[in-house]
């Protein structure tokens, strides 16, 4: 079970995800993100502060969204990662690929 809340901001959208992101819930996360990238929403800020678990299917969903935003010169920024989620990104070395911030404020600053 996962909860998704999309908040529009001037330069794009903030997507809040709550719950476990696994093979069961990642299609729902993917659908929300693909709708936004399909509309070429310039910048996506993804709030992971209420995600306590993420597996490789969740990571794959975020990689796909990152590739889409890169494709139209947008930005995808992750923020608020819990220790377990951070570990998943480190294990896959994707912490070097994604733009990861501590807080929502830090993420908004990155948009300039």
């Amino acid at each position: 079970m996962v909860e998704l809340v999309t908040e529009k901001i001037e330069k794009g959208a903030i997507i809040g995800i709550a719950g476990d992101v696994d093979l069961y819930s990642s299609p729902e996360v993917r659908q929300t993100l693909m709708e936004l990238t399909g509309k070429k929403t310039k910048h996506l800020l993804i709030d992971l502060s209420r995600v306590s678990y993420m597996d490789s299917s969740g990571v794959a969903t975020l990689v796909e969204a990152l590739q889409q935003t890169n494709g139209y010169k947008g930005k995808l920024i992750l923020f608020g990662l819990e220790a377990m989620v951070k570990e998943v990104f480190e294990l896959s070395r994707l912490d070097k690929v994604f733009n990861i911030c501590g807080t929502r404020e830090n993420a908004l600053e990155k948009l300039g």
């Binding site: 490789s56 590739q67 294990l91 896959s92």
Partner: peptide, 18 residues
Amino acid sequence: DLDDIRPGGLGIHFISSI
């Protein structure tokens, strides 16, 4: 290969790393 950035294919890497 972890340098090949694409969706999917990480599960086995997680299992063998852990």
